[in-house]
């Protein structure tokens, strides 16, 4: 019995260790290790071989150097406008899409948070419902809606609003529609989670002290929902910045988003080192807003508990 207890304790300790280590293990296997590989490849030269890049360390006898390292890929990124234009364009599209998601999502999240519990569940269910269909299928559906002989053009022509079909598909507009549509739930859900916890007594206290409804929104609701706004915005901005499927399917030739550039570099040009450099820079661009978010979260916990 004593040894049983002893065993039990050892199991307990091991389990506790595992629980602590598990997230780090996850991060290491699925994030850090792949990133280390990409990072390593970004310092190689492309060659026609399998794999198509020079190794960082080469201990074979034919090799003239056992260590080979180049910054050419990063230099090239700086010199060729294409990459800067892609980054900037991605940034612009992701930023505007995030703003649009916020403008549309905030009132929706607010309405859901203030609805009666029954309605709240129904509305939340409706927000999550699209996830039950494949993302790719939903983007294809938008192609059908936006194309020259698609639903929108047919409708506008049949009511006599226009004579010629509008060019909707393969434009930046279609990309915005696609991104806002796809990522709106990621804005609404964290905002809802934040707004639903807000103490309505605070609004009434402000009203009692002389604030009109609009002033209450500005002074109380908006500042207190900042964590939700930031979380939702990052959840939209980060994936939108690297989005590939939506610009590839809905965008025009001039919709140069970095995801597409990366794809072309990797699969069409087979330039793995250069595309690895593109990916590394993209990651750095993404880490920055994440750090801001982290920083904000720490400030946040300051007054919440």
């Amino acid at each position: 019995m004593n040894s049983n207890l002893h065993q039990q304790r050892i199991m307990d300790i091991l389990w506790r260790r595992f629980v602590i280590v598990a997230p780090y293990l996850w991060l290491f296997i699925f994030f850090l290790a792949p990133f280390a590989i990409i990072f390593k490849i970004s310092f190689a030269d492309p060659i026609v071989a399998q794999p198509p890049f020079t190794p960082l360390f080469n201990f074979s006898v034919q090799a003239d150097k056992w260590f080979y390292f180049t910054l050419d890929n990063y230099r090239f990124l700086l010199e060729d406008n294409l990459y800067w234009i892609s980054y900037l364009k991605s940034f612009k599209i992701a930023f505007i899409s995030t703003c649009l998601c916020l403008l549309i999502g905030y009132p929706m999240a607010y309405a859901i948070a203030r609805a009666s519990p029954v309605w709240r569940n129904v509305l939340l269910f409706l927000i999550i419902l699209p996830f039950w269909t494949s993302f790719l299928l939903r983007v294809y559906a938008w192609m059908g809606i936006l194309s020259t002989h698609g639903v929108i053009n047919n409708l506008l022509i049949s009511i006599g609003f226009i004579d010629q079909p509008l060019k909707l598909l393969y434009t930046d507009f279609a990309v915005y529609v696609g991104i806002v549509y796809s990522y709106l739930p990621f804005m609404i859900l964290p905002l809802f989670a934040n707004l639903v916890k807000l103490d309505f007594d605070l609004n009434e206290a402000a009203a009692d002290l002389g604030a009109t409804p609009l002033v209450i929104f500005r002074d109380i609701t908006l500042p207190l929902s900042m964590p939700g706004i930031i979380a939702g915005s990052l959840l939209v901005f980060i994936p939108a910045l690297g989005e590939f499927v939506i610009p590839a399917l809905l965008g025009g030739l001039d919709t140069l988003m970095i995801g597409r550039t990366l794809y072309d570099e990797f699969f069409s040009n087979r330039d793995w080192p250069l595309s690895s450099a593109v990916a590394t820079v993209l990651l750095l661009i993404l880490v920055l807003p994440m750090m801001i978010f982290q920083h904000h979260q720490i400030n946040e916990t300051d007054y919440q508990e």
Binding site: D199, D201, A207, D208
Partner: peptide, 28 residues
Amino acid sequence: PYERPINMMFQSYAVFPHMTVEKNVAYG
């Protein structure tokens, strides 16, 4: 409520969590 010559102290106190004591008192 915002036009009544009445003020209320809430059961939950409803002190604004994002403002200092001073700012809370100054709000009205």
